[in-house]
Amino acid sequence: MADWHMLTLVGADRPGIVAGVTQAIFAAGGSLGEASMIRLGGNFTIMLMAAVEGGEARLRDALAPVAADMDLRLHIDPVAGGLHQHLIPNVQVRVTGADRAGIVAEITGALAGVGFNILELDSDVAGDPRRPVYLMHIQGYSDQPIEALEAAVAPIRASGIAVDIAPVETLIG
């Protein structure tokens, strides 16, 4: 098995980006691993694990035509690790408040201060464009009790940002 690389591709959203990128890797004999792909602010963004004999140079050659054709910016990094290394989140944090600079930095800073490990984060700006609302959902792992996380974000709540912290329990059936 070839070593894994992390591909980052970003470009103005249009139909066919995923098909073009993945067909190019497949045609080069590559394999895909875990991926996160989402439209952000009108751009389509791809973070994708890929492995191919020949490594970065082979990936770059394979992807150059589709990147040029679809006007995608491409970045490739070798990565340690691999598949089957999932961590299961045990805490969910939901944040809502009038949009202003610093919300993410404050919340994540407070959580990092008590050792919280973010596994997934998505955020959005919604509401009336004249009165935008920031929404953020985080799932992560903490070995601290919920009370410790609550205490860490208490000063941020006092500033008018709603922060809901709840345990996530995974049912195994």
Partner: peptide, 13 residues
């Protein structure tokens, strides 16, 4: 909504 896993689907939730 809540998170689930399964004996028949190892390593995924």
């Amino acid at each position: 909504t809540a998170r689930e896993g399964c004996l028949s689907v190892p390593d995924y939730t």
